[in-house]
Computed example of a mutant assay.
Amino acid sequence: MNSNAAIEAFLEMMSAERGAAANTLDAYRRDLEDAHGAMPKDRGLAHASVLDVRAHLEGIAAQGFAASTQARKLSALRQFFRFLYSEGIRPDDPTGTAEAPRKPRSLPKTLSEAETGRLIERAEAEAAAPPPGVSREAAVRLHALVEVLYATGLRVTELVGLPLGVALRDDRFFVVRGKGDKERMVPLSAKARATMSAWLRVRAENPASAESPWLFPARSETGYLPRQVFARDLKALAARASVPVSAISPHVIRHAFASHLLQNGADLRAVQLLLGHADISTTQIYTHVLEERLVRLVNEHHPLAD
Rank of each mutant, 00 (worst) to 15 (best):
S259V: 14
F80R: 02
D26C: 06
A305Y: 07
R54L: 08
G117P: 11
E58W: 06
P108M: 15
G180H: 02
M196W: 08
G153V: 11
N264H: 15
H255G: 06
V229D: 03
V146K: 02
L261E: 09
A239C: 00
W199C: 00
L107F: 05
V298D: 03
Q63E: 13
D26P: 05
L119Q: 08
E12I: 07
F257N: 00
P244D: 06
L51Y: 01
R227A: 15
T195W: 11
R172P: 06
F10D: 01
A238D: 13
T222E: 08
G223Y: 10
L262A: 10
M196P: 14
T283R: 12
N23V: 04
L274W: 10
F174M: 00
G133R: 09
A241V: 09
G180W: 09
L290S: 07
P40G: 14
L304H: 09
H301M: 04
K41T: 07
S246W: 11
L11G: 03
P217V: 12
A67H: 12
S75N: 01
G153P: 06
F174Y: 12
T157W: 04
V134S: 03
P130N: 01
R82P: 04
A204H: 06
R155N: 13
T287W: 03
S246N: 09
P101T: 02
V229R: 14
E115C: 02
R227Q: 09
H301Q: 05
E17V: 00
F257T: 04
K103L: 15
E221W: 14
R184G: 02
E292Q: 15
P217N: 03
L77H: 14
G153S: 01
I7R: 00
A6H: 07
H143G: 12
E221N: 12
A55L: 11
E291A: 05
A123M: 05
L107E: 01
H288I: 11
S189T: 13
L45P: 05
P163H: 06
E211L: 07
L51N: 15
L45F: 09
S106T: 13
H301C: 00
T116S: 11
K73E: 00
E147N: 06
M1L: 00
T95K: 04
A139F: 08
T69Y: 02
N299A: 04
G161H: 04
R172C: 01
V146Y: 04
S135R: 09
E147Y: 06
A27T: 14
R254Y: 04
E12R: 13
D92M: 15
T97E: 13
L45W: 07
R72I: 05
A138H: 06
K41H: 07
P187L: 09
N23K: 10
L32S: 01
V53Y: 08
V243Y: 13
L162V: 04
P104I: 07
R122H: 03
P163M: 09
K109L: 10
A210K: 14
H260D: 08
R72H: 06
S259Y: 10
R72F: 06
H47I: 11
D306M: 12
A256Y: 11
A241R: 11
V243L: 07
G180C: 12
E292Y: 10
M185V: 15
S189Y: 09
V53I: 15
R184N: 02
F174L: 14
